[in-house]
Design a protein around this nucleic acid. Structure first.
Lengths: 202, 202
DNA sequence: ACACCAGTGTGACTTTATCACTGAACTGGC
DNA sequence: GCCAGTTCAGTGATAAAGTCACACTGGTGT
């Protein structure tokens, strides 16, 4: 417990409080950490695993905004905690994850007393901002076929995903993904089957 | 000097240090606060005015990411200061602005010793994150004609802007804006002239 | 009065999004 | 095994948006 991450380098008094008030939770893949509209119950500090954060527009379409991994603090939750508004996005556990749920009071004390904790927070914010800026640029200006090929090239070959899920990754429509993939298959670059893409050469 | 904002509620010792090490600067409209690739020289804390932050993609197209106003701290600069990387975007002064340039050392001390300052930082980050998430959704899923009409409706009538600049606001191409505006003019909703749009009814 | 140039208009074409529907592949029950 | 229900994938038709190329126009300065 509390073996990892930012929390292990706290000064002794804080470590004690942390050990007492922090809830460490384990989330299985598929679990929804929070959904849109919901209110924040505590600040998740990721100790391990992978969580994707995605958002659904008024149109009903969704897009993956970014992913959180070990040592990330959920910046979205900080915002919700501060403002009291509900979440604007939803978080979906992709790989078995362990997260420490930091209550508000402790969070404030940590911010007050640990420079290392503050640094961790700032880094998480920085990463998120960067991710989102890059995403805006991608979505606004880059071509779909390029983005799709990059996405495919970035993972290892038997990729298990549906066209619908891939469309959410890229922020487009399922049909668009289907057509582009079919085109790639015609060119002999991938091989398609239900729920699976084999990359044969990019 | 230091009459405003977060800085006026600091404890006395910090106020003194702040007054000594902070440079208050005045920027005229049109001035570029920083551009892409540049390195961060100090943390701008906006005291008044308006600055727009925009980014240019590899394609050469640009998009306005968000705007900063009074009491905003430039979150992008925090990231640059921490990581040492250059800016990914550029900041353009729209209205005469006054900003306090906080050096790194003072920033760390402020974070350490002022809860109010920390809160201000977190709020700025929260706003930015929110702005960007909303923008991603807009760009990815919403129709251009709707977005254009909303943009027009949100300001008061003789709007002085070129189609090119409007395209950057919305993250699209100049031609698209020209055509949509022409269409609106045909419908009698706006009246177009060089560098100017009169909204006659939306 | 003329040259120059930023700003605008538009045709032709490509890419992407949307709608509507078909069929194919898995699932669970019987 | 066979069938019904469901999820996933393919595709035509059409509309919206982006790209490229080029013409025109209104203002500026000389």
């Amino acid at each position: 417990m509390l073996r990892h991450s930012i929390l292990e380098i706290l000064p002794p008094e804080l470590r004690k409080e942390a050990a007492e008030s922090i809830q460490v939770m384990r989330f299985p893949p598929g679990k929804i950490l929070f959904s849109a509209g919901e209110h924040c119950k505590g600040l998740p500090l990721m100790l391990s695993g992978a969580v994707k954060v995605q958002m659904t527009g008024i149109s009903g379409n969704s897009i993956v905004l970014y992913r959180m991994g070990a040592d990330d603090i959920c910046t979205l939750s900080i915002g919700c905690l501060m403002t009291g508004y509900g979440y604007r996005a939803e978080a979906f556990v992709e790989e078995e994850s362990v997260a420490a749920l930091v209550p508000r009071g402790l969070f404030d004390r940590l911010m007050d007393q640990s420079a290392a904790f503050r640094l961790g927070i700032m880094e998480s914010y920085g990463r998120r901002l960067d991710d989102l800026m890059l995403l805006v640029e991608e979505v606004a200006f880059r071509r779909m076929d390029e983005r799709l090929e990059e996405w495919l090239a970035a993972r290892c070959s038997p990729i298990h995903i549906t066209h619908q899920a891939l469309a959410v990754e890229l922020g487009t429509a399922r049909e668009v993904v289907s057509r582009l993939l079919k085109e790639l298959e015609r060119k002999g670059r991938v091989q398609l089957s239900r729920g699976r893409i084999d990359v044969t050469g990019l």
